[in-house]
């Protein structure tokens, strides 16, 4: 059994690489969508809202297939884009909620000092928005890691696939699946723990969404 561990380890690396890639991609796009939805003109706002709705409503697998078959991409890249747009849609809604919970007066005060709208968004709104959405983002990170398993369906050899390969040889499915489950628990728990440290570090006394 020991000789199969390197294979599992390779799978872990792919899982982490995939998860981080599309989480960060989703984070950036999610920010843009949220800001577009709140501060954009009618057309941009509607587009961003529509984007968020569609990618939240479609099953991950359908998005994966559309990218994979539609654009002839490598499985890994297709997975990053497909799963990335999905988490972007979810993240954008946390960010939007956070922006809307920040009092309107913050924007007005920034503009009254002579800041441009863009500068006010970057310097005043975003630092508050990111802090307020951190708890949700940390939850979304756990979901992201679990979603990497779906890339299996278009042939990305991540941990679950590596596990299945080992099982076909060793015929000990439960052992392998339990090891995989524990690995997932470590990655998701470890990550959310690190994010909770970040949350503590950036906490501002008296400033949080209360519910």
């Amino acid at each position: 059994m020991i000789e199969y561990l390197p294979g599992l380890f390779r799978g872990v690396i792919v899982t982490i690489k995939l998860g981080f890639s599309f989480f960060i991609f989703g984070f950036v796009v999610g920010n843009i969508i949220a800001i577009g939805q709140v501060y954009g003109n009618k057309f941009i706002s509607l587009f961003c809202a529509g984007f968020a709705w569609v990618f939240r409503s479609l099953p991950a697998l359908v998005i994966l297939y559309l990218w994979y078959f539609g654009f002839n991409l490598s499985p890994f890249l297709a997975a990053v884009l497909a799963l990335g747009l999905r988490t972007a849609a979810y993240q954008s809604q946390f960010f939007r909620g956070a922006i809307q919970s920040i009092a309107r007066g913050q924007m007005t005060a920034a503009r009254s000092l002579g800041m441009s709208k863009l500068r006010a968004v970057v310097k005043i709104i975003m630092p508050q928005m990111l802090r307020l959405s951190l708890p949700y983002i940390s939850n979304e990170y756990a979901i992201t890691i679990k979603d990497t398993s779906l890339a299996f369906a278009i042939g990305v050899v991540e941990i679950l696939k590596e596990g299945r390969l080992i099982i076909t040889v060793l015929h000990n499915p439960m052992d392998i699946f339990m090891i995989i489950a524990v690995i997932y628990l470590i990655i998701t728990r470890g990550g959310t723990y690190l994010l909770s440290l970040l949350e503590k570090h950036y906490r501002i006394p008296g400033f949080e969404i209360s519910n």
């Binding site: 679990k146 779906l150 015929h171 499915p173 439960m174 995989i180």
Partner: peptide
């Protein structure tokens, strides 16, 4: 709750379909 929230649904599905028969 920890187990089912902390692991992917697909892994759970595989455990039930491919794993449980060995039990």
């Amino acid at each position: 709750i920890e187990f089912f929230r902390g692991t992917p649904l697909l892994a759970q599905l595989f455990i039930i379909y491919y794993g449980l028969p060995s039990w």
